[in-house]
Each structure stands twice: as C-alpha cells, then as structure tokens.
C-alpha cells in the first residue's frame, strides 16, 4: 500500500492510446502487478499498462502519470472517486462521463474534456477537472454536474449543450461558447463572443464566483488574481433556444 500509484511513460508514444478505465478508484484495491496488468488499448489493440508505463505503488486512491500523454485518450474516463494527476499533456476525452473525484492536468488537454461517452446524452455528472494549460474543442460539452477549469484557452464550442455544472476558462474562449446551454455556467475571465441567443442581465459581483475562485486558489494552488475573485462580471442568461436558465459570466476588464 502506498500514498500514490505513479505511472511513468517509458518512451515517447507514436500511436494513440485509450486509457479508458484506468482510474484511481479502480487502482485503490490493486497491487502493483495487478495495475501493470490492467488492459489498455494501443491503436485499438489490447495491451497491458505495464507495456507502456513503469508502475510504482499499490492500493492508493491517487494516480499520478508522468510524461507526454498527449496521445493518451480517455484519462479518468468513468472515474468515480480519488485523484488523478497528469504531469504533462493529456489527450482527448479526459474525464469522459466521470462521476466523481478530481483530475489535474498540469499541461494541456485535448478535445471533449469532461464530455459524454459516444452517443450518450450526458457528459460528466460529478467531480472536478482542472487543466493548467489549454483545452481543445467541446470542453465540458453536455456536462450534467461538476466543475471543469481551464487555466489557458478553450477551443470552439466550449460548454456546448451543458445541462448544468460549471466551466471556468481563464484564457480565450473559442467561437460558439455554451450554445444550447440549459442550466450550466460558463465563467470567462477574458472577453468572449457571447452568442446572440443570450440576453444581458446585469453587471455584479457574483458571490458564487468568489467562493469558486477561493476554492481554486486554495485547493489547486491556481494563480487566481484578486480581480477574478472580487471583480465585476457581466451576466448573460441563455441559451434562449432552450430553457434559458444557463449563464455566461464575463469578467469586466479594468478600465
């Protein structure tokens, strides 16, 4: 038993890998050898975790990956508890349909961060994902519950068809943000192009944003400046194409 199960990439990858199911909650009751023997898909072919990673530790609810995992998809997919950390970049579908626990990507993440399984109506339904760098397209699409934080920029269609939950983007947000949003929150710290299907409500200091930013600074040591925590936000209600109970909160830049 150890505090952390660490998986260090042995050599740079040249093919896509699907790590679906390699979650901390699963490793929490497994030995080092059992973790190394877990299945993983390399270009669709079944292999063992130990074929790609040096595995150290056992029976821990914290899983830590080392290396450039930008070709590894599905990290933390279906996760229900524990903590997953990637010290590097991650591929697509990080936290796909996750239900709980926390995922921290120290680098960039690919497309469909926290999104749904193929054909599913709901993305993540709980837990928290924090990406220090950038995220690809469709971040937090169809999220039902939970928190997705992107420290850098997010691609197009961020927060697409959110059912509820929260997406925070510290950097630039691509086009078509939060379209089809039902009750979700997109919090943008830089100016974004708010869709025409949103209606401006007011400019205020949201107490929830203050709580959230305090949480991000304390729990994840994110560099949250005071303006993001204390500042004024413009609130837009939408998407008017649906129930319209979602929102985009945009930090007002200093004058």
């Amino acid at each position: 038993m150890s505090e952390v199960v660490s998986l260090t990439l042995r050599a740079p990858l040249d093919r896509r890998v699907d790590a679906d199911g390699l979650t901390p909650d699963r490793c929490a009751s497994l030995t080092e050898a059992q973790i190394a023997a877990l299945p993983i898909l390399i270009s669709g072919q079944v292999a063992a975790v130990g074929d790609l990673f040096d595995v150290k530790g056992s029976s821990a609810a914290m899983l830590e990956f080392e290396g450039d995992l930008s070709l590894v998809d599905g990290l933390g997919a279906g996760m229900i508890s524990g903590e997953l950390v990637v010290r590097g970049d991650a591929g697509d579908d990080v936290g796909r349909a996750m239900a709980g626990g926390t995922i921290r990507i120290r680098g960039n993440a690919g497309h469909r961060l926290g999104g749904p399984s193929p054909g599913a109506s709901k993305g993540m339904i709980g837990g928290e994902i924090v990406v220090d760098g950038n995220a690809g397209d469709d971040a937090a699409a169809r999220v039902r519950r939970g928190l997705v934080v992107v420290g850098g920029s997010a691609g197009v269609s961020a927060g697409r068809a959110m059912i509820a939950g929260t997406l925070v983007v510290f950097g630039a947000v691509g086009d078509h943000p939060a379209e089809g949003n039902k009750r979700g929150s997109l919090i943008a710290l830089r100016d974004i192009r708010v869709p025409a299907s949103y209606r401006y409500a007011c400019t205020y200091e949201p107490p929830f944003v203050r709580l959230l930013m305090t949480h991000l600074a304390r729990r994840y040591r994110l560099a949250v400046d005071e303006r993001a925590r204390d500042g004024l936000y413009k609130r837009y209600c939408g998407d008017a194409a649906g129930p319209g109970k979602g929102e985009i909160l945009v930090l007002v830049p200093p004058t």
Binding site: C202, P206, P207
Partner: peptide
C-alpha cells in the same frame, strides 16, 4: 452549484444573489 462536493444555492435577490 456543487464545489468540492458541497452543494450551494444561489438565490436571486434584489441586490444580486
């Protein structure tokens, strides 16, 4: 809203929330 596993309620009031 759920943050760190704790649920909060944002109730609209005349001042804001």
């Amino acid at each position: 809203k759920v943050v760190d596993g704790i649920r909060y309620w944002r109730v609209p009031v005349m001042e804001g929330e």
